[in-house]
Design a protein around this nucleic acid. Sequence first.
DNA 1: GTCTATATAGAGATAGAC
DNA 2: GTCTATCTCTATATAGAC
Lengths: 222, 222
Amino acid sequence: MATRSTTSWTDGDDGRPNHDSDGKGVNQDPGRSGDSARRLVEAAVEAFAERGFHATTTRDIATRVGLSPAALYVHFPSKQALLAEISIVGHEAALDLIERSVDQPGTALSRLQAVIRAFTAWHAERHRVARVVQHELEALAEPDKRRVLEIRRRIEGAVEAQLSAGNASGEMDVPDTRAVARALLSLSVDVARWYDPRGSRSAAQIGELYADLATRMVTVRD
Amino acid sequence: MATRSTTSWTDGDDGRPNHDSDGKGVNQDPGRSGDSARRLVEAAVEAFAERGFHATTTRDIATRVGLSPAALYVHFPSKQALLAEISIVGHEAALDLIERSVDQPGTALSRLQAVIRAFTAWHAERHRVARVVQHELEALAEPDKRRVLEIRRRIEGAVEAQLSAGNASGEMDVPDTRAVARALLSLSVDVARWYDPRGSRSAAQIGELYADLATRMVTVRD
DNA sequence: GTCTATATAGAGATAGAC
DNA sequence: GTCTATCTCTATATAGAC
């Protein structure tokens, strides 16, 4: 089982280590800074996102960090544990994002917009982590899989609740809240599959566009 | 390289063989009917969809069909070739679907609705093939990958063309046709990831819902 | 075209020195 | 905590009989 004591790898842009994240002064050699456990997770995120969990070798992960294949097992008991660490922390980050958006003041519509904006931008900005989170569910082992599925249910529930609230207030016109909630999340989630940071639209812009599309999908017409 | 001479496996519901597809009379034992090549493809679709290309063993595929591991190599030169067969035929089927919808008479909006309806329903109805088509791109080898990417460009182009036409005719109000075309396809495609035939909504119903959501997304308001 | 048997390679993981 | 060396298992693919 992974430690999950350090969740700092969820910060930063997609696996690149933050400068000075340990508060010990300027890093002379950013490529070799930070503790090995964190850097192994970062390397695993990159590798799993690029090639998938099963196509990635422990050797590949260790080599990316500049360690021998055996060094990985000092920090993680197995390749599976590395995946579990990534998937669980990633899911928790996504849920946290949703819940913070939902807790904000405003109308059901403005909260839904905030959710879609943030959730979509996260799936673009952190597309490597998000790809692992969304595409390697099947590779998870119990009891991690169960834990992750529960988080996913809460995410869907939070979105559906906004649609129901919007229907009740008259702002929205959503006949099938369950199916539309799933569609909205599906739309955001799939950004992680195709997003390329070299593209012409930023993560924030895509979040903005998707919040607008969501608004059109759920609001009353004429 | 795979033969691609028989594309009959794209018919039927998700890998279950058609009765009497060879015109030789009633099959006494449907589970063991049909030629081995086709049944291997069907088994590979199931396995790749469930567990992914890399997590699937040739042994697993052959066993599902009731053959020895070695028998697979009589019909396909490699596991890669099996994937290529599935991916290419699947992509061609999806493109065909789009082009047939686009060629129909009507307005840009009605054609877009037809595209989304058909494309979405296909990703639900044939979710196993679609999952392989959409999630195993990275596992493809050249030159198959190049060929498939070209098909994907044509699909995106066809949808974007409808949005541009709709803007021109005044039916639609789509500021960023490129991004919205990608979003619409992304929405449809992702159905293959989560669709479960045991769910309460049929493939056709989801297609209908998504055509409606698409309409709301692109049409002029007020 | 199918089988049994096997070659070959590469994977995940461990042992034990430093 | 990291290394080198290696164990063990399993995967893809082939050989050759039937």
